[in-house]
Structures are given as structure tokens and as C-alpha cells.
Write a protein that binds this DNA or RNA. Sequence first.
DNA 1: CACGCCACCTGTGAGC
DNA 2: TGCTCACAGGTGGCGT
Length: 230
Amino acid sequence: MIKLDRRAKYILAHLGSGEILVIHLGMTGGFFERPHGTLLLKHDHIILELDDGTRLAFHDPRRFGQLDLIAPGKINEYKSLMALGPEPLAPEFTAKILGTALSRRKTSIKAALLNQHVVAGLGNIYVSEALFLSGIHPERLACDLCAAEVKRLHQAIPRVLKAAIRAGGSTLRDYRHPDGELGFFQDQFAVYGRAGQACPGCTCHPNKTGGIERITQNGRSTFFCPRKQS
DNA sequence: CACGCCACCTGTGAGC
DNA sequence: TGCTCACAGGTGGCGT
């Protein structure tokens, strides 16, 4: 392997052969060292032997992950990467670009942000968090947002992602691994998974008003504060 | 084309 | 205690 790269939620491993190994960790995928002579674990699906002899296992209990070996020069034809939207942490991600993309979407802002063609790399958790930070109701239509709201969203998205990266990512309740370190951003969630609780800095009383609410949009949970998001 | 829905998969935890 | 079952998520295929 020559170098590791990333695009959206995909890891790109450039091999000496010119091939590129495209890796998506899915929900529960990850690489773990399995020294020679040690046993593989249940859910170790693929074994990689590195140049220095290190034996790595791709461990993925739910098998949502994927590995694709792309022939030299063919990465631009790889469909999963072709139509991805801008990287939210790159300079190319401007409020104007975001606003233009959203103005063409006649779906909820929640669904639009989950769409990797609009912005690349946001998952269900971070969409809820970004909408809360922006004060935008998740059921609003993407094309109905005003410029000020797009601007707030454009600021909130990198803020949420950077905070999550700083905290080492998020580890949800059903994924634990003896060798794997856990992320701790889940402890900082403002709304995600906190239905019925008070949101940060909440001045209303959860027991009287209901606190954070959970709804289902396009088959996925959304958490939001109906008083702070409109 | 754009959108919604469902399948894929398995560990977890609530409820009986 | 032991069982069943709904639920969680990212992506892609399919139907509308």
C-alpha cells in the first residue's frame, strides 16, 4: 500500500499495483490486527496482509461494510463515488453551493442532508445534531429554507463534524469490541437518542412539555426540539 | 429525474 | 430465567 485517502465515507487504499481498494465500514466495520499465530474472531470476513507482514482482519458483525478492488485508472468510473456532493469540511463546501443543492430538493431537509449527492459524509446522527444547532425543524422542505437558515446550516455542519472528530467519533450502544477503542461523541449528543429529555440549555420543563421528540422520517429516526427548531 | 420504501444483517434490550 | 421480536444504521435497487 502506498497511501490512504478518503472520499465521503469511503476509505481509498492506493496499492503498489495501481489498484485502489475502496473500503466502506458500514455501521460496524473496522480493521483489527490479528498477529500471526492468533485465532481469527467471529465476523472477521477478510484478512489483509500488509507489506510489513502485519495481518489485519476486516471485522464487521452486521456486514454492512464493503470492500471493492478497483483496477488501475478505473476509480473515476466507480459509481458510488461519481455523483457525491461536496466534502463538508473542504473549502468547496460553501453556503451558496449548499443553498443551490437544497433549493432543488422537494423533500424534507432531513432527507436532503442524508442524501450523499447534496453533501457527502453526513449520517443519521449528525443530521439531527446539525439541524438542532441550526434551529431548523427536520420536516421543513429543503427547498423552502431561506438564505439565513442555509447559512446557519452551513456553519452547523462542520461544527458538528469537527466536534465529533475531536471526541473520537460516536459509538452506539450495540457495538462493542474488546480490541476496539470507543468514541465518546455520543456523550455530547444534543438531541440524538435523547427523546423526552431536555435539550442543552433548555429553559422549558421536559416533564410538562415533552422535551426532545423522536419522529420517523423515511424509515429513520430523527430527534429534535420542537421549541428550538422551526 | 426525484423521491419513498424496502432489503440487507445481527447484537441488543424491552416485554412477556 | 428464557424466549420472541422490534429496532438501529448506510447504501442500492426498485417502484411510483
